[in-house]
Design a protein around this nucleic acid. Structure first.
Length: 272
DNA sequence: GGCATTTGACCCAC
DNA sequence: GTGGGTCAAATGCC
């Protein structure tokens, strides 16, 4: 059994409503809810979100409220999910993954989501079907500041996650475009750069969490700070990165920084 | 040992 | 009968 590599950013000292405190200009990858006809904007595209949801009864569902989103970042939606099933769907190239809110038992939260990979592009496009609103009341967790550093020789891009409260960690992305982050026992979340097969099949990316916000060593090279408590009784996982965007010209943006990979393949992801 | 994930089986709607 | 959604035992990791 291969445990899904997951990663959590968190800062116990950060304000719980950290996302709400952030300047809107930094909410680059925040999937906004907007009802109505699906549309997309260049800004949303840069955030990995190509299509917003529509309300009503979702595909394949019964009389349950559901909505659909197409996204390149299916794991970044601001909530904590627990995978409970996976099924090969007829006529679908990729299996469908089933998630439910991690607080289902604790707080009787009925929220769930279905994850269906739509293609094998790089990055792959996912269709995410959400069912039921969250009633768990878990607030989004804080977002770290992400700063792109020029890659050291043979080491790939370094992503430094500096959470507002002072704890931080680095995620070093291999130059082949993979980025996978892991901690133990973390709720399901993943940063993925590149196709899913690539994400799972190659050597793991190296992650460091040895620098705090001041740049001084504060963490061991493995392990990251525990997620902040949600309302005091359990962490919630943010799953959108407020200052990170994977652009479709293969540029990656981190706040005001832009990183251009060496091998720009010029995929036109804007056609979705 | 505890907990999350995997995966085959079961249930149910169409 | 078929396909999709969920359950739950098995498995594996920390």
């Amino acid at each position: 059994m291969k445990r899904e590599q997951s990663f959590e950013f968190g800062d116990p000292s950060a304000p719980q409503d950290a996302m709400g405190d952030l300047p809107r200009s930094r909410l680059t990858a925040l999937p906004e809810l907007s009802l109505g006809s699906p549309h997309r904007s260049p800004r949303r595209a840069a955030a990995g979100i190509t299509e917003v949801q529509y309300s009503g009864v979702g595909i394949g569902q019964r009389d349950r409220p559901s909505w659909v989103r197409l996204t390149y970042t299916p794991y970044f939606d601001g909530h904590l999910w627990r995978k409970y099933g996976q099924k090969k769907i007829k006529d679908a190239e990729h299996p469908r993954l089933y998630f439910r809110c991690s607080y289902r038992e604790d707080r009787q939260c009925l929220a769930s989501k279905l994850l269906q990979q739509k293609n094998g592009d790089d990055p792959p496009l996912y269709e995410v079907t959400y069912t039921y609103e969250h009633t768990c009341g878990a607030p989004p967790v804080s977002f770290p500041d992400i700063v792109a550093e020029p890659p050291a020789a043979r080491e790939g891009l370094v992503l430094r996650f500096d959470s507002p409260g002072g704890h931080g960690g680095d995620a070093r992305m291999q130059q082949n475009g993979h980025c996978q982050q892991s901690t133990s026992r973390s709720p399901f979340m993943m940063l993925s750069f590149g196709s899913s097969s690539q994400t799972h099949d190659h050597q793991p990316a190296v992650f460091r969490s040895d620098l705090d916000a001041a740049g001084s060593p504060s963490f061991p090279t493995e392990g990251l700070p525990a997620p902040p408590p949600a309302n005091g009784d359990g962490g919630d996982m943010f799953s959108t990165l407020n200052s990170f965007a994977y652009d479709f010209d293969n540029q990656m943006h981190f706040g005001d920084h832009t990183y251009l990979p060496h091998n720009n393949s010029n995929h036109d992801y804007d056609d979705y």
